[in-house]
Design a binder for these strands. Structure first.
Lengths: 347, 347
DNA sequence: TTGAAAGCGCTAACAT
DNA sequence: ATGTTAGCGCTTTCAA
């Protein structure tokens, strides 16, 4: 049966060439073509070249579904995306996804996005898993109480987490995270070097382990330098408004000369208060944010910000994924990376 | 042969249940189970329930690879992502991807991300296409001279473009776009309503059809209102710096009381100049941006901005995709949606 | 080094 | 309304 069909002026390919088509063209068996693709070492150089020529000429590419069915793998990595939400710093996630896609591609994987909401945190995972639609998952929202890591572990599903298992010290799954404390320490030490001694902290409420971690970096650097911290710390919601209010209170009560914030959002709030009070960021009061978001970069007065090494995170995650899927024993399940400081006019 | 294997204390499922497993359990043939999943109407209610129970109990989900192989479809939509680039307004793309994932999910599709760079614009497409790894593509960067739409058309590959075929008036592929001119007209009329008559335009260089389109909206609204435009338009690069400089020149030479910008980036530049000159956005000078980016929302003085209806775009794209893949004749290949205006303090 | 046979899990077509 | 047969395109045995 012909694989092409006559219509109008020319021949229109009805379906892509298969292994059998290439085999016929090259005058070998199907298996030899398969070997040419997957185990070229097994072929005699002459045969290999002949097959490769046929592959080239016909534009052959192995059918994914057939290969997936046979090898029981999809070369797909699942990544859940939450419903689009406004105003939050998901620009960071954007950067991460980009680098993850690039890095995965180098390892022969594609990234499959699937929808999810917090009402049914594992639904999407469960479905893809049972359908063997993906080989593994990358889990990004590992905040306190998130059941995904535990659930996936229980299902024996391969996955790598971006984020430490804060509330599960006994967890053994591989993870990659950024050392937030090191980041805020970097920021604080940068300000100390600039001569600041009264450096305030604006962070999140106590129930966020990530927030506590970042706070610890500021606290540690201040203690090490022998600077007081009493009355210089504030814990608020992660909104511009809260940041602005916290900054106003701190300025009135504790007269800091610099602010380190747990997020760029809070830092924007600080900048807002400075603007209202006619204080110049960088000259009168220094401000450092966290995440090096779009906003930090594009803001007229560039905002100094702690920058997560997302490219390195993606590389580490893909590496962990590879050893996980290749059943290679990975000695250290956790990788902690150090952020850098993007210094701009605000400090 | 057993599908479970004894190890240690319990039984560990080695592979998910198949159609045959469910059929055996329910005491029917495999085909009946398949029908229960895909054509439930064909079954007698009693049988259907029995099969459904078995499916539920065993946690059965059809194997994707097998189904894909048989049906010659993957239920996957390919979306190319460019390498992570800094500073640009990809926050918009982020919002789009989120809504696209959500909308696709409702239609039974997942989104497959693949890497691509501008050196080889069609490489990634070609590979996925020949491997029949995706059913269709969503093409987003339809700027002038982009060869993807033409190439995909030539390959007879199903795809929907987000963006009009500006430079290919004869193109017949389905596309969805946002009416930029209507957006800037909305912005301009909003300012006119507020009493402004000298409204300046800061846009992109002439080689961008999108930029020219947005400019036309401003121009049309000004003409319709009978306001002069001479000396009030500027064409620059899409950077904060360029926006700031253009605003300074316009303020000096033409004394506008309001600015409409082709992007939030340019609007940020305007705000910077206003800040330097101690002019209050919204009170002294009104500013409107385009894209309703993160920056516009989080900026201390909220930036009024034209907001693209990305949710509607995603819905329209998925709809077009469905009719494309369902071989349903779609009468109108192009869908043009109207943006809205997110009004904030800056106007 | 190459080829033949088998089968992954599913669904379309046909038969009952 | 349900069962039987065949085969999607590939890779993993195994044989030559």
């Amino acid at each position: 049966m012909s694989r092409t069909e006559s219509r109008g002026t020319g021949f229109i390919p009805v379906s892509p060439p298969t292994l059998a088509d290439v085999a016929e063209r090259a005058g070998v068996s199907r298996q030899t073509v398969s070997n040419a693709v997957n185990n070229p070492d097994l072929l005699r150089p002459g045969t290999l070249e002949r097959v490769r020529e046929a592959i080239e000429e016909m534009g052959y590419s192995p059918n994914r579904a057939a290969r997936n069915l046979r090898t029981r793998s999809s070369q797909l990595i699942g990544l859940r995306v939450l419903p689009a939400q406004e105003g939050t710093a998901n620009a960071m996630m954007d950067r991460f996804v980009h680098t993850l896609v690039d890095t995965s591609a180098e390892a022969g994987y594609h990234v499959l996005l699937f929808a999810g909401d917090n009402d049914d945190p594992v639904g999407g995972y469960d479905h893809l898993l049972r359908a063997t639609a993906v080989d593994a998952f990358v889990v990004t929202d590992t905040y306190l109480g998130n059941p995904q890591a535990a659930w996936l572990t229980e299902q024996r599903a391969p996955f790598v987490a971006f984020g430490r298992p804060w509330d599960q010290p006994q967890a053994t799954h591989p993870w990659v995270d950024v050392d937030g404390a090191a980041g805020t320490r970097l920021a604080t030490e940068h300000l100390i070097e600039k001569g600041h001694t009264r450096i305030a902290w604006i962070g999140w409420r106590k129930d966020s382990p990530i927030g506590e971690d970042r706070r610890a970096g500021w606290l540690g650097a201040m203690h090490d330098a022998g600077h007081p911290t009493t009355g210089l710390a504030s814990r608020v919601e992660d909104t511009v408004q809260s940041g602005a209010e916290a900054a106003a209170v701190l300025l009135d009560e504790s007269a800091p000369t610099a602010f380190v914030c747990a997020s760029d959002t809070l830092a924007m709030g600080v900048l807002h208060t400075l603007w209202i009070r006619q204080l110049a960021p960088g000259r009168d009061i220094a401000v450092v944010g966290f995440d090096d978001s779009q906003v930090a970069q594009v803001f007229p007065v560039g905002l100094t910000s702690v920058r997560q090494p997302l490219e390195d995170v993606a590389v580490a995650i893909v590496r962990a994924l590879e050893s996980l899927l290749g059943h290679v024993h990975e000695p250290n399940p956790g990788v902690l990376l150090t952020p850098t400081l993007a210094v701009r006019e605000s400090s």
